[in-house]
């Protein structure tokens, strides 16, 4: 039973087959149960795309700035046959700063204003790791989809939550997400180190990945039609993943 994953690993790391076989023969790969990953991406909420807006508030306040969105994700692998299926959760944080405008003449003021977001997600992931495990090609395409609940806060020049007509500039939006990406199996570069990583701390595989995410957080509640502040965006993100 334990020999199979080891053999798969050896095949997956075909370019270094001799060395990984030696290691694999003396130690079997530990069972895989999940994955932890973190990523950074340039996220630009498309607030101005909301239908019916008479101006472009995001551009007025922030120009063309993106926010650097950091996200951490934990997945539990539920099925590992032809590729793997996982269910996971993720949380992130991003902020973008700009300047408020004088109400009298729309000139730029020295007052800061900021949009801060905390996207929380429930995601399903399919990793097509067959190429890596059976044919030694260290590439793993993957796709994700899930539900997003994104908290946001808008701050004014004093650093407090902004208000307009008594309405507080903080809330949350529901939406969905669809991602596609490609992971590079870093074990391929140094199989011995990868094996030791498994033996020492139980991390079976390490990946670098590039991913295109489309996050659509535009609903006041998950069952309503799109409305509310538009936080949707499609953006590239890059990160590291540890499969354990």
């Amino acid at each position: 039973m334990v020999a199979l994953p080891a053999a798969l690993l050896a095949i997956a790391l075909g370019a270094n087959e001799a060395s990984i076989s030696d290691v694999a023969s003396s130690h079997a790969e530990s069972p895989i149960s999940g994955m932890f990953s973190f990523s950074l991406g340039g996220y630009t909420p498309q607030v101005d795309s909301e239908p019916g807006l008479t101006a472009q508030p995001y551009s007025q306040a922030f120009g063309t700035k993106s926010m650097l969105l950091f996200e951490a994700e934990w997945d539990r692998e539920l099925w590992q046959q032809f590729g793997s299926l996982a269910l996971g959760v993720s949380a992130g944080y991003g902020e973008v700063y700009g300047k408020g405008l004088f109400a009298a003449n729309d000139a730029t003021s020295s007052d800061n204003t900021a949009l801060k977001v905390v996207p929380l997600k429930l995601l399903g992931t399919y990793n097509f790791n067959v190429l890596a495990r059976r044919y030694g090609i260290p590439l793993v395409p993957f796709a994700k989809g899930g539900i997003v609940w994104e908290l946001y806060q808008i701050t004014n020049g004093s650093g407090d939550t902004a208000t307009a007509n008594g309405e507080s500039g903080q809330g949350a939006r529901w939406g969905w997400e669809g991602d596609v990406g490609l992971s590079l199996l870093l074990d391929w570069f140094d199989p011995t180190l990868a094996k030791n990583f498994d033996i020492d701390v139980g991390v079976n595989h390490t990946y670098f990945f590039a991913e295109w995410r489309y996050m659509s957080s535009v609903r006041n509640n998950p069952f309503a039609s799109p409305t509310g502040i538009y936080l949707k965006d499609g953006y590239w993100t890059f990160g590291l993943a540890l499969e354990y």
């Binding site: 607030v47 909301e50 019916g52 807006l53 008479t54 101006a55 472009q56 508030p57 995001y58 007025q60 306040a61 922030f62 700009g98 408020g100 405008l101 004088f102 109400a103 003021s109 007052d111 204003t113 900021a114 949009l115 808008i154 701050t155 004014n156 020049g157 902004a162 208000t163 307009a164 007509n165 309405e167 507080s168 500039g169 903080q170 809330g171 939006r173 006041n220 409305t227 509310g228 502040i229 538009y230």
Partner: peptide
């Protein structure tokens, strides 16, 4: 001074608090 939230609301944004 109009911060981002005020700009959004004055532009007719439907997002609520």
């Amino acid at each position: 001074i109009d911060d981002f939230w005020r700009l959004y609301k004055s532009a007719g944004g439907s997002g609520d608090g």
